[in-house]
């Protein structure tokens, strides 16, 4: 049973981690909690639904329930959602940053979240969609440890994206500039960094990763208008657990939350699953508000 909890927890934790990277980066750079982050995942999932539908049905790849159209749709959806995140900043947050304070930005992001979710519900209706009607066969990995091929592929893709993001931050000039702006925006400008450009890049990256999380969630669960909103609490818990502004922290935080949620089902009952993220977040804020990886105090 422990093996099953681990594999389920790691798979959903990897998706939480992907979504939390964008959240922790924008929170670290712009000093505000973006409540619309979950909606990027929703929109990413629906973008992929439309694109995969337009590309037409192709035979599923091996034991998977989906074929190449969904993989192509994933890439295109990441690009579109990146643009959505960027435009939300350009239309809304950038103007408010100039005049308003953090509270104004948080409330605005809450409004944006409601608007984005309602738009999805208006366009697609409240009923859930699936990328495929095929039945996902489970594979036996070890005694008492089963996973679908979909889960394993999604997990591998999520880990690849996390690694790519980590390398971008640690090894490239853009990552260096992002770390500098996150540490001290005024000083970064004086050190010659175009902070506005770094902020734009952060929205693009955060949006793209959230879209991937949404598509992966759609593959392993279902596509629903509220999927991103329900992801929001785990995202915040993961970002706070790892330390605001820390990308490795968001990844590890996501995995911890995912495993804790999966463990809660047999231990406390499925109805308490959603409460776990909340409890972890509260405990972390009380005990160690800077997070495991020493980010900014949340």
């Amino acid at each position: 049973m422990i093996g099953q909890i681990l594999i389920d927890g790691i798979t959903s934790g990897a998706m939480i981690g992907l979504g939390a990277i964008g959240l922790t980066l924008t929170c670290g750079l712009l000093r505000f909690a973006n409540f619309a982050q979950g909606e990027f995942a929703t929109w990413g999932a629906y973008f992929a639904l439309l694109i995969a539908g337009a590309l037409g049905g192709a035979a599923p790849l091996g034991p998977l329930t989906f074929g190449w159209p969904l993989l192509a749709a994933l890439l295109i959806s990441m690009g579109l959602t990146a643009l959505l995140a960027w435009s939300l900043d350009a239309v809304l947050f950038r103007r408010l940053r100039r005049h308003g304070n953090a509270i104004v930005l948080v409330i605005a992001s809450f409004g944006a979240s409601l608007a984005l979710r309602s738009a999805v519900e208006f366009l697609f209706g409240p009923e859930p969609y699936y990328y495929s009607r095929d039945i996902a066969m489970t594979l036996r990995l070890a005694p008492g440890m089963r996973a679908t091929a979909d889960q394993l592929v999604v997990l591998a893709l999520a880990l690849v994206l996390m690694l790519a993001m980590h390398l971008l931050l640690a090894r490239t000039p853009l990552g260096r500039a992002m770390r500098a702006v996150s540490e001290n925006p005024d000083l970064a400008r004086l050190a010659g960094i175009d902070a506005a450009r770094v902020v734009r890049a952060t929205w693009l990256l955060g949006g793209a990763l959230a879209a991937a999380a949404g598509v992966f969630l759609g593959v392993t669960v279902q596509v629903r208008p509220a999927m991103g909103f329900e992801l929001l609490l785990p995202l915040f818990a993961a970002a706070i657990l790892g330390g605001i502004g820390s990308v490795p922290g968001a990844m590890v935080g996501g995995l911890v939350i995912g495993i804790a949620e999966a463990a809660a089902v047999p231990l406390a009952g499925a109805q308490y699953r959603a409460a776990v993220a909340f409890v972890v977040m509260l405990a972390m804020l009380l005990v160690r508000p800077r997070g495991l990886f020493g980010g900014r105090a949340a």
């Binding site: 000039p173 260096r176 010659g192 960094i193 175009d194 450009r197 770094v198 890049a201 990256l205």
Partner: peptide
Amino acid sequence: LAAQGQPGERP
């Protein structure tokens, strides 16, 4: 950080 015109600072 202060190097000018770094192509790698573009996304």
